[in-house]
């Protein structure tokens, strides 16, 4: 039902922190963490909206932290020597850009919103604030991040390993 104007002006939005908290609880990154810790993160993250085709960050640009996809789709691609490679299509509850949270390195890929996308940004200053003001939460978050990054590293290692063995096998077939 459409509200009259004066009521629409004073209509209360749903509590953004609560909405973010409920979303974060369902993400792989914060799964299993106590509610208290997730609520602290929800208080600190930045909610941003991107239009279709809008670049979230560019490869080579200095980054400040990671993004979680609350709603929408994001494409990750990398360019090198004139060749652009689409690395991944990410959707709700995925996250990207986590390396910039811990290292002052330039972004290794470009992220582009593919549709109307809502992201939650969690950046270096917020992580620092959390570690300083709520050390327990900070530790729990750091542990959660390191688990996820380790998982990704193991995956990358496996991929490299299998690629290496495949290449070696191919070489053996061609040069008996």
């Amino acid at each position: 039902m459409e509200l009259p104007y004066w009521k629409a002006i004073f209509r209360k939005e749903t509590n953004p922190v609560k909405e973010i908290f409920l979303f974060l609880k369902k993400t792989a990154l914060f799964e299993g963490l106590p509610n208290k810790h997730i609520r602290e993160v929800a208080r600190l993250v930045h909610k941003r909206t991107y239009h279709p085709g809008e670049i979230i960050f560019r490869q080579g640009q200095k980054g400040a932290g990671l993004f979680l996809i609350m709603k929408g789709k994001v494409e990750i691609n990398s360019s090198s020597e004139g060749v652009t490679l689409s690395l991944a299509y990410l959707d709700d509850h995925s996250f990207f850009g986590e390396l910039s949270l811990f290292a002052d390195e330039p972004r290794s890929a470009t992220a582009t919103a593919k549709e109307e996308t809502t992201l939650l940004g969690f950046f270096q200053p917020e992580l620092e604030t959390l570690i300083q003001t709520k050390p327990r939460t900070g530790n729990a978050i750091l542990l959660a991040f390191s688990k996820v990054i380790t998982k990704r590293l193991i995956g990358t290692n496996r991929l490299l390993e299998s690629a290496y063995f495949r290449a070696k096998k191919k070489k053996e077939i061609h040069e008996p």
Binding site: H46, R48, G63, Q124
Partner: peptide, 25 residues
């Protein structure tokens, strides 16, 4: 201060958002 700062950076365009965060920090 945190919520005042958050509402201040929320008006920064997406393009300059990360940069603004790091510079203000």
């Amino acid at each position: 201060a945190n919520s005042i700062y958050k509402s201040f950076v929320s008006i920064v365009p997406n393009r300059y958002f990360e940069m603004t965060l790091m510079i203000t920090h």
